[in-house]
Design a protein around this nucleic acid. Sequence first.
DNA 1: CGAGTTTATGAAATCGTATGCACTCAGTAT
DNA 2: ATACTGAGTGCATACGATTTCATAAACTCG
Lengths: 345, 345
Amino acid sequence: MSRPNHPAKSPTMRDVARLAGVSQPTVSRVLNDTATTVSISEETRQKVLDAVKALGYHPNMTARSLRTQKSQMIALMIADISNGFYHPMARAVQDVARKHNYDVIIANSDHRYDNEKHFLEAVIRRPVDGVIMVVFRLTDEEIDRFITIAQTPIVVLGVQIEHPEVDVVWADDEKATFEAVTWLIEERGYSQVGFLGVPDDYPPGPRRWNGYKRAMEHAGLPIFSDYLYFQGDFTLESGRKAARELMTRQDWPPVMFALNDLMAIGFILELQDAGYNIPDDIAVMGFDDIPEASIIRPHLTTIAQTPVDIGQKLVNTLFDRIEGNRNGPKRILEAPCILTPRQSA
Amino acid sequence: MSRPNHPAKSPTMRDVARLAGVSQPTVSRVLNDTATTVSISEETRQKVLDAVKALGYHPNMTARSLRTQKSQMIALMIADISNGFYHPMARAVQDVARKHNYDVIIANSDHRYDNEKHFLEAVIRRPVDGVIMVVFRLTDEEIDRFITIAQTPIVVLGVQIEHPEVDVVWADDEKATFEAVTWLIEERGYSQVGFLGVPDDYPPGPRRWNGYKRAMEHAGLPIFSDYLYFQGDFTLESGRKAARELMTRQDWPPVMFALNDLMAIGFILELQDAGYNIPDDIAVMGFDDIPEASIIRPHLTTIAQTPVDIGQKLVNTLFDRIEGNRNGPKRILEAPCILTPRQSA
DNA sequence: CGAGTTTATGAAATCGTATGCACTCAGTAT
DNA sequence: ATACTGAGTGCATACGATTTCATAAACTCG
């Protein structure tokens, strides 16, 4: 086992060089296979490799980063680590990053402005080679300030960011909402549709609300917003709260469209706890298709997003920039939304 | 908006120094409030701070890390980012780390040996100031090798690690399993209990199996292992597979104890899909109390762990070492397991 | 066989910060 | 007046790598 009395700091290139009887830059060249017009004799190469093995040498990334101005790290900010939507996405990002030999710093914003801000500052202090963010609150101006300081490629999930140097992945959730609500009315035959949304200053709020409104108008249905409209904050608990509010009301819409699955699930659970039946007393539709949507009974009718695909689009777009394969203008990638009928509506 | 033609690399201390008309070390001293017997005149201090603000200077963590041999980062490896058990834990770790001004690198092992190994190697290349791991496969020997190389404090979740320099947080899951199975028999009146486990080379496998076996012996029940024993790999899908296997059998135990919630949930879903009733046709109990346990119908009877508490114990123990508050011997912290009766058993 | 070319390597500078040491300049003691 | 403190700064160096430039040795060729 280990010998605590033997400090044994990590061997450096100098140590390797000494043991191999060569100079320190030579070690660097051997280890980096420096493509650019160098050449090393097979003999020295072997001596160096042997010394590396003998000492158990590992390169020090910090020193390398300082010299090369590359950190071999990317930073990922997601909105909510508890939201199942982000897990496959984060994993996809990590998998690709690992293939490129990059590490990933993950941060969590909880949809909060100060956390998003703090993330940018952290990333400025600790330069990373690229940034992926799920943005809810930051403005173009703040991102612009960041870009001029950090000089780092950024890719975001969130179409509201229009900065000309930020690549964007997005899903046409307004259209998807329009189609889903229309489908609820025309195919499922619901005569009215409630909407469980989030405040307007969260970008998906107005987008999905517009899709909903257009669908209602398209169907010739009136929008009695106080009767049909509920508001949450993306969390399961806020879905429960909306249900409690509903239960104080006389008139219920026959179906409720929730802006995301987590709120839809909270909404259903609270009503079930109170003895109501879904979808008979009120039907519910969600958005995202997180794993829990297939766990709850009745299984949740929802709009599936493709988080693995989204994650891959994000990270591949980022590495295109990092590795200089692309320098062109802003890139916009669209991910699909897939209507996924189950039993809850 | 930004001017792409103006490269504008980040200002350094030298730039600040030039603008303030002082030397670079002076800037360093002002910014670091070097506690150790220095003193700076109020006048210079102001000049420096003004220059910092004027230039928008941010310290370069890479350079600082190289100089101080501290990275201000810790690494966290969890076993499965999709497993809700780890989310509050990871968040607790992040929250505390942020308070200490540390960033967190998160990695995901998927319970796989090669991923755990890769994690250690990554951490050796990129020295971090501390490591938190949920260990399933690594041995004491490998961890020892790592410690001698990396010289970094480590805290693990997983009591099988006995290395004298590794702090451990654990839950007495063997005892909890014993008590839970005994409770199923004595309080709930089940005449037999099935066990849905994982292979023996995952440490919780034998521990919880032992708890189960002791409870059965204690109750005077025989263990027909082929009739009662099923095996999965922690995932929901493997729980479904176990259910499919069960359905090929003639005799069913009246209740199944699953080694974790995810498998319990998969098990229930598959049986429900086939038209069976839980808990009437077969009752199910899980372990962990992940959020989904309260989403599935019937709500899952389980053994709650305390992930926030566990996360805090892990990270606080780690920072005790990092900040030198503790140099003592191996520390072992126990987290509670709480029997949580619901409707599934 | 000497000049030019290639091959293999080392010396030195550099990345941005922290820190031990030496120095200056008041102020005080002798 | 001389020496002695101590506060306030600057100089020089180190952290561990990469990279540019220079050079010694070996080789090519007319």
